[in-house]
Amino acid sequence: MIAELVWSYIYVVTIAVIVLSLYGMATRPNLLKKLIMLSILSDTGNILAVLIGVKSGVIKPPVFPGVSFTHHPEAGTESLARFAEEAVDPLPQVLVVTAIVIGLAVLIFLSYIAMLLYRKYGTLDVRLIEQRIRSGGGR
């Protein structure tokens, strides 16, 4: 009972962070604030993917049982079954390692665009940028 409540609470908090960051991206006019909320959104998506791979109650790293630096046991059926029983799902973790780095590259690209906009229009406020574009050009 308490275990289910706590796991539901963790999922609800994760969804709440996603909703908050989406709200911040939609309503804040400053481009840098939008970028900060976008970074929080992508990180929360990654956390949610890892969280889905965790079976409730089992939190152990996905290390194959019996493997050490010098000893590599044969992967039999029973050892695979034990691995699937007592470790978290390794697939989301493998995907998320790539997603973290790609998110960093996307954010650097967007920051560069924001700095170019500031250089041309003299502000990061999207409403002022729109006004200045409508009134014909730079600052």
Partner: peptide, 10 residues
Amino acid sequence: LAAPDLVLAY
């Protein structure tokens, strides 16, 4: 969440 490789990257 038992993801030490993600911790090192993140």
